[in-house]
């Protein structure tokens, strides 16, 4: 009973179930290999909303509502809403909360916010606080482009290491379960990362910046819980992309003789799109990336027993246009949650 503290970073839980999960994505994501797993696919980026910011908010609201609808719950029973997005002042998450009127824990951890939300929600529930927590995250390609890069119609060439901010949202309904039954999907552990900055400065290469943070959190998690990476069927990083997964693998090999993570490592950003055909270069990114891939694809893989145990490691680059224009390197963070299916 109660939270088990394994270290300052890692905690384990016995009673936190994920009762439902829902993902809503944009048209490009809907043409990707995971299309059949998403609950709703928009036919256009804006889906008739007046701006990309409003569209992003709507994307999140749809995912949250679908997660509730699936198990016949309504907003009134949600104790906490937890989550975040990429926009300044969290205007997607915060403005969506204007409508649902539930207590809100809005967080910023860039693209790492989804795992952070699941971890914090689990911690609160297991600790005897809220009974039901709706955790979610979202991103929108167009709103991120205009905030971080250039106007949509301004021509520029993407570099091979550039990520593609996904138009996607995912939400999970967490609740306290007295006992786990067969088929329940549960959050079993969480490891909160620290900020890692190994001196990367290129805003067009998040993989190199974030990979050390992902490696640090995964290693911390395995050490704290006395586990080997083979404990998990798959370790899914958030949006390291093609290059980032290779870098984490290389860091693991350097760390210790015999560390071979390549079989277990996978990445939400790499899975969301067809890398060869969809012109996304390094893969998908954005808070909605790991949120939608988990809430759409991975959750179902656990339900259907394709996977028994996975570790979701959402990764975030904590920089702003201001910080990189001032020449600062890019601090990164990764948060991990272990999610299991009970037999």
């Amino acid at each position: 009973m109660g939270v088990h503290r394994r270290s300052a970073a890692s905690y384990t839980f016995d009673h936190v179930g994920i009762r439902s999960a829902a993902a809503v994505v944009g048209p490009k994501e809907g043409h990707g290999p995971l299309a059949s797993y998403f609950d709703r696919i928009w036919t256009s980026e804006l889906n008739n909303h007046v701006s990309s910011e409003v569209a992003e908010r709507a994307l999140l609201t749809e995912a949250q509502s679908l997660a509730l609808d699936k198990v016949g719950e309504n907003w009134a029973h949600v104790d906490w809403v937890v989550g975040g997005d990429l926009l300044d002042q969290l205007i997607a998450t915060d403005f969506a909360a204007r409508e649902h009127q539930r207590p809100l824990i809005g967080m910023f951890a860039a693209c790492a916010v989804f795992a952070e939300s699941l971890g914090l929600g689990a911690l609160a529930i297991e600790g005897g606080g809220p009974k039901m927590v709706l955790a979610g995250a979202c991103s929108h390609h167009l709103s991120a482009e205009r905030q971080f890069r250039y106007p949509i119609e301004l021509g520029y060439q993407r570099t091979p290491t550039a990520g593609w901010t996904s138009t996607a949202a995912g939400a999970c309904l967490l609740s306290y379960l007295d006992a786990m039954n067969s088929g329940d999907v549960a959050i079993e552990a969480a490891t909160f990362g620290r900020v890692v900055d190994w001196g990367s400065k290129n805003p067009n290469d998040m993989s190199t910046a974030m990979a050390p943070a992902a490696f640090d959190t995964i290693k911390q998690h395995l050490d704290d819980l006395g586990r080997d990476i083979t404990y998990y069927d798959q370790v899914y990083t958030g949006d390291l992309g093609v290059l980032g997964v290779k870098l984490v693998d290389a860091l693991a090999q350097k760390e210790k003789e015999g560390f071979n993570w390549s079989e277990r490592l996978n990445d939400c950003g790499r899975s969301l799109y067809d890398i060869d055909k969809q012109d996304v270069h390094n893969g998908g990114s954005g808070p909605g990336c790991s949120a939608s891939v988990f809430s759409g694809f991975l959750y179902r893989q656990l339900q259907t027993q394709q996977f028994q145990r996975i570790l979701l490691v959402s990764t975030g680059a904590l920089f702003s246009p201001t910080s990189y224009q001032q020449g600062e390197s890019i601090p990164c963070i990764a948060h991990a949650v272990a999610i299991v299916r009970h037999n």
Partner: peptide, 27 residues
Amino acid sequence: GKEGARQLTQEMQDYQTMANQMRPKKP
């Protein structure tokens, strides 16, 4: 250096070198 500029350890420098080699090149 600039205020707040970070001193990179040998490990970090080695990592950046490795990443430079693994990074797909611009065509």
